[in-house]
Design a protein around this nucleic acid. Sequence first.
DNA 1: CTGTCAACTTTGTGATCACATTTCGGCGGA
DNA 2: TCCGCCGAAATGTGATCACAAAGTTGACAG
Lengths: 242, 242
Amino acid sequence: MGPAFAGMAKVNGMTRQARRATVSSPPLAETPAARDTVHAQVYAAMKHALMRGRFKPGQKITIRGVAASLGTSATPAREAIRRLAGEGALEHLRSGTARLPALDRARLSEITEVRVALESLAARHAALRMTPAQVEALEAIQVELAAARDRKDYATYLMKNEAFHFGYYRAADMPNLLRAIESMWLQAGPYLTLLLPAMRGIDLHAAAIEAARKHDAEAAAAAIAEDIRRAAVRLASLIPEA
Amino acid sequence: MGPAFAGMAKVNGMTRQARRATVSSPPLAETPAARDTVHAQVYAAMKHALMRGRFKPGQKITIRGVAASLGTSATPAREAIRRLAGEGALEHLRSGTARLPALDRARLSEITEVRVALESLAARHAALRMTPAQVEALEAIQVELAAARDRKDYATYLMKNEAFHFGYYRAADMPNLLRAIESMWLQAGPYLTLLLPAMRGIDLHAAAIEAARKHDAEAAAAAIAEDIRRAAVRLASLIPEA
DNA sequence: CTGTCAACTTTGTGATCACATTTCGGCGGA
DNA sequence: TCCGCCGAAATGTGATCACAAAGTTGACAG
């Protein structure tokens, strides 16, 4: 089998003990989360790969494959896969093999409704608490997002879209809500790439920013809900019937 | 250290291979989920223990402790703990030790709002799809719940309350939503026991049942939301200030 | 009696192993 | 050409190991 993630950077090869002992390694090239356990690094790597559509629907994910791609042993890879399967981002076949679940219309519709409920709630709280600095940061992201969209740089577009939404929700300061939202994105992520070519000025980010500036919770919730629903409608039309 | 779960039944001691090979073991004493992996059994055992308040807030959960209590090796116990920590039901200290997080008012308030959003949504769908047989099953549970409450049998009361809510939501037929709800219950579960002595006729289950019978989605959502909020208000008054 | 420090125990982590099951590839026959 | 069968490779699972860090205990000095 081929590597599970093509082009994914290997986790720092040092053992946990060695990593902890090395107080001052060469000043450069220290991975951001080098303090974390290997498990956390593997999980984070898979999570981002999932959200950015690096896996294809139906693709099998093997323990040894992930471990080899990231240069770790099987143990942390197995734990990360189990955890993602527990969140619904991966599906466990009866044989034990994990793969990405297929997205049918029923599942898309369910995830969309849950997302609307959760992200509206987050937007409501975020709008009430957002500081001018945070609003400015979102505007900056939105400028980059629009630029990436216009130049058809879909990888950047996807990254900025994620940054916009989670930047917005983080202002709500509700960690458990944020975790639930992340879990839904993990499931929808692989399919966002399908949507990309059809993405043209349908986002309601400007309205959401304006609502946050005015601390208008209901307007914020409505903008985010409509943003999610519009993307879902486009996506549904691209999914073949069951 | 003492066993992590006092009185918890041990997982069948046979290895996975032996379990699969043994097609017909002695007819008695086959654990319901004996077909599942050991990991699934450990996770399920911890999940139920958590929801029924068998752990105390702040209690440390050790890998070897769980493994010994359930008669397994460290591997499945470690995975189950990691998974629960990922869902927010357990908290990982910097040293790596896992423990039950403390419930302050801010966290209770956040979880309550998320529960209202998720469980209202589930109730709305459930009310539209519920069959007469399902309504009857809920009524039966509610009778047992009321009886247990009156005779102060709190363990049964807790079990029936869980059965009522999840039985209701299951009718919505939205597995991902159900998973998200479960994740919230896992966090609030340990504290429900605090609430028990104050529980007297405050539930809105009768209204929820009536709404389901009439397929009135909005009334169902309102009843469930109010049920959650009332319990949360009582619970908040029992938590000391930060 | 109290504070300190060293030895000992407990704990989490990641790697590795053994084994049953599943999956895949190729080969032979209808 | 297509189907079925068999053996080899791959895979998931659970147990175990080695090691460093964290936590605990107890003796001893003040």
